[in-house]
């Protein structure tokens, strides 16, 4: 199907494919109501039922984008209406970071949306799909469909799977001991660092052993930054020296 759609891109009849993760209690029911009320909307959306937006691991969105989705919609209950009390709030918090990551990997942030649609809002659902499909049509196909997927994407997915990033994001759901603004900045920084480090480990996995200079060329990171990451990765027991080349050390994964 993707191929079919890609074919159509060339002919200028781009039909976006949008994945919608809908919570069972509100938004999935809202989409059902749109059906029973016969509210028409474009065919671009594919719904995946989940129990609660609280369940949405950020990697589920990043993976979908990586696989070429033109857009991802996460739809849940309105604040205060969550069937599980606060799942939607947790998603909302997570979403801040997720959106930054999306931008970071070179995807227009507008392609990813978090919306509240209640079980009685069939009309809102239809309008939302209409609006999102139109917006993404304007943006064009996902950049990942047209050119090869940057390694940064895989690195971002890995970063969101890493204990370090997950822990700091997870903590923010409960209680932040320090000033919130500062905490957010720290999480942003950790996200950035983890993505970069995972770019390095991915490169080493594929092509290692490599020198810092080679890594810097592959990842596009500044040489000094690359070196800093290598030092940290070395500390964490993830990389180790593996000989020399052109008067530089070669690094490989442990």
């Amino acid at each position: 199907m993707v191929k079919e759609n890609l074919g159509k891109v060339a002919e200028g009849e781009f039909e976006p494919l949008i994945i919608a993760y809908c919570c069972n209690w509100c938004s999935y029911a809202g989409a059902d109501l749109a059906g029973t009320s016969r509210f028409e909307y474009p065919t671009n959306i594919r719904i995946i039922r989940i129990m609660c937006t609280g369940r949405m691991d950020s990697t589920l969105v990043l993976e979908a984008l990586r696989m070429g989705a033109d857009g991802v919609l996460i739809a849940g209950c309105h604040p205060g209406d969550c069937h599980y009390q606060k799942g939607n709030f947790m998603m909302e918090k997570r979403f801040d970071y997720l959106k930054k990551a999306v931008k970071n990997i070179g995807i227009e942030p507008e392609r990813v949306r978090l919306e509240w649609v209640s079980a009685s809002e069939g009309g809102k659902w239809a309008a939302l799909v209409r609006e999102m499909a139109e917006e993404i049509k304007q943006l064009g196909p996902s950049p990942f469909r047209l050119r090869s997927i940057p390694k940064k994407t895989d690195a971002a997915i890995d970063a969101f799977k890493s204990q370090r990033l997950r822990w700091v994001v997870g903590r923010s759901q409960i209680k932040v001991e320090i000033e919130e603004q500062k905490y957010r900045q720290t999480v942003d920084l950790i996200m950035q660092v983890e993505i970069e480090r995972h770019m390095i480990t991915l490169a080493l996995k594929e092509k290692g052993p490599l020198t810092a200079e080679e890594l810097s060329q592959i990842t596009g990171l500044q040489p000094n930054k690359t070196m800093q990451h290598l030092i940290a990765l070395r500390r964490d027991g993830i990389v180790i020296e593996a000989g020399e080349k052109n008067n530089q050390y070669l690094y490989q994964l442990v």
């Binding site: 989940i50 129990m51 609660c52 369940r55 949405m56 599980y84 606060k86 947790m90 204990q163």
Partner: peptide, 12 residues
């Protein structure tokens, strides 16, 4: 079954 814990577990 909301799954919030699964989404946040640092070790997945």
């Amino acid at each position: 079954g909301c799954g919030s814990c699964a989404a946040e577990c640092p070790k997945r």
